[in-house]
Design a protein around this nucleic acid. Structure first.
Lengths: 389, 389
DNA sequence: GGGGGTTTTTTCGCGCAATGAAGGAATGAA
DNA sequence: TTCATTCCTTCATTGCGCGAAAAAACCCCC
């Protein structure tokens, strides 16, 4: 089982390390010319030229005939832009939600090729969720004439122990506890599988395709039935020393009376979460369907205030975490994060109020750019990265 | 000005990249043999042999004749241990404390060659501190027949803005605010200088020479007149998105009445810091000299209780931060951290109580292994790393 | 003490990647 | 057109990386 997104394990051979390094740069960056590769790598131009020539001959890279109009400096021969060719390799991606299941097919560049979503209470029976996910993935493969997958990446709501892939059972009460979901997927599909915490996977999605683009250090907060954080550190997802980074749902807010399912009082996710917010909203919306209604549809002042207040509570906790971590961005996702402006404003207000001035000045607070698809897109991205290792 | 510990900028040429990679491994690890290098790099044994032969010929590496008795597997030809030769290169290191100044001379392996400490109220006049540090450094050079330094690294108590090296003035009230200490050192000494936050520098010291050895992810807490944290992430010091990571002194503990110098109530460092603890101790130790006495000398039950309680307050805040970051170690340094068992026990108790079970189970809480020398040794280590870039 | 097994390290020649220098190619400006 | 600038390729040379096989240094056992 694969347990991390470690860089370049499969060194084909040192002899063409340069070519692979050049290719990886072309793949991961955008609008690169040969000369910008020279700048990036520090290699002599002849070496870069040689490597690119060979990559072109192998069909792994194409040249766009339109010349680059980049800020080269003005005059002079314009460089030709190089693009990596997405291979025929396909990967699988799975987002195990609480009440839904998203499955996708991706290419090695991290693009979603096809996807499918079903409503399913995964929480109740993770095994059923795994079976259904595998079934959907097989259907997607058939539909796209894909005969084999390079790997599969999944996100589950629970803390995944580093190294073993075990869903830790002392911290979560969910039915995932005690399972080895990556191994389960490998057994069912026969390909390498990697399963990570859903917030961590969502953070990757936002990093590559959403609000996190251009940021190297940020927090993705998945505020849904529970609250979890995904960390991006130095441009890479960070899982912590033992895989449990981002488990912030049970940080205690002193003085709050709310009883948490974990037994303590004042846990962040007892104060701010879909169930607790729904309960508060229930007083003004007595006919609120607890399972189907979208929080985002609530635009009356009282609801806005409740959401804003929830955001403030969340932001007060995040402020302290920002003092430690100093991110440049907070991405608020999950059902609450995508519920609208009120909650985001509340988070921003609290962060500005409680975090260090210099720290909060560096922070932007935004809702998830990908909405509910952050996790799936992150899984596709991780699978793409995994496929060329 | 150098602004980060980035890896291997100065690639001499790609042709001997392998040799440099091998050398870097020998330099940074310990007790390596050729065969362990083969395992680490994935290179063919012939290539490693070739590279090592040349390094030996160049005098950059020596072979210890005593064979390695490592856990190779038992029988078989024992490998010869390779050691990097410390070059004649010398670096400077400075620890700017509140009331003391430590200056050291280091080699490129990060070892302290010579050092000097003076008592000086650096806080009152950073410029005087800089002048005195430079004077001491020059004296150390003379004493050791060193004619030139490769670089200088310093640690100052204040948040250093990434990129510019400016001591941020919106966050700290110290006299360092608004200064560019790295530039000041460069102007005075004429060599590349890097200045970082003192807690961050201390973390590096503990990482390489102290309690942090063998850990990849930990927090070094400098609990002294203020409270700051140094983060080690993936085995590297981490300064945050804009350089302010670890500024945890003003995280607010809800419900605490203590007035902080920043104007808020209940800041961590208003509750737990040398001044606040001294004030509490003053009731039982009315003749406590506020400037000279060592907290560690207080062993009576009441003092122990006060320190334990301070540790508990500190630990309650750290618990939340650990939930986010999931370190495997908390190193408590600074004057309070080295005051004895009581405070450490308090931190440990709170972390175990308030952090997630799986998170706290992964954490060890220890006092600084290097005591007050953590910052100087970290600066020497960073300077050594900087010198071969 | 000699043989077999194990692990580490070196030897050897081949092939090819990396290199610097020089020149060609594509553009804008004068 | 000519020049300056920037980008890219060509070319011969150098020496590194490679695999296979042998040598070296240890252990254990009989």
């Amino acid at each position: 089982m694969l347990t991390a997104m470690s860089p370049s394990i499969g060194r084909p051979s040192l002899r063409d390390r340069t070519r692979e390094e050049v290719f990886a740069l072309i793949r991961d960056s955008r609008d690169l010319t040969r000369s910008s590769l020279v700048d990036l790598t520090g290699l002599p131009s002849s070496t870069v030229s040689h490597a690119v020539t060979r990559l072109l001959a192998e069909g792994r890279v194409t040249e766009s005939t339109a010349p680059a109009k980049g800020p080269g400096s003005g005059s002079g021969r314009p460089g030709l832009i190089l693009n990596a060719v997405a291979s025929a390799t396909r990967t699988g991606a799975i987002d195990f939600g609480h009440r839904h299941l998203r499955v996708g097919l991706g290419d090695d560049m991290g693009n979603v090729v096809d996807e499918e979503t079903v409503v399913l209470n995964v929480d109740r029976s993770p095994v059923k969720g795994l079976d259904e996910a595998v079934r959907l993935l097989r259907a997607l493969c058939d539909r796209n004439q894909v005969t084999s997958l390079a790997c599969v990446v999944g996100g589950v709501p629970g803390p995944i122990e580093a190294g073993t892939g075990l869903v830790n059972s002392t911290t979560t009460l969910s039915n995932w506890a005690g399972m080895y979901p990556a191994r389960e997927l490998e057994d069912r599909l026969g390909v390498p599988a990697l399963v990570a915490n859903d917030a961590s996977v969502g953070a990757v999605g936002e990093l590559y395709h959403g609000a996190g683009r251009g940021h190297r250090d940020f927090l993705y907060i998945k505020a849904s039935h529970g609250i979890g954080a995904g960390l991006v550190v130095n441009g890479q997802p960070y899982q912590g020393g033992s895989g449990f980074a981002g488990e912030i749902g049970h940080i205690i807010i002193a003085g709050r009376p709310e009883l948490c399912r974990c037994g303590n009082r004042g846990c962040l996710e007892a104060v701010v979460s879909v169930p607790s917010v729904r309960e508060q909203l229930g007083h003004t919306h007595p006919h609120l369907d607890p399972d189907s209604i979208e929080l985002a549809s609530l635009e009356d002042p009282i609801s806005a205030r409740i959401l804003n207040e929830a955001g403030r509570s969340l932001g007060a906790v995040l402020a302290g975490l920002c003092d430690l971590f100093n991110p440049t961005l907070l991405v608020i996702g999950g059902e609450l994060g995508t519920s609208g402006k009120s909650l985001i404003d509340g988070v921003r207000a609290s962060v500005n109020r409680y975090a260090q001035p210099a720290t909060s000045a560096a922070i932007t607070v935004v809702p998830a750019g990908l909405g509910r698809r952050a996790e799936l897109m992150g899984a596709v991205q991780m699978a793409g990265a995994l496929s060329h290792q």
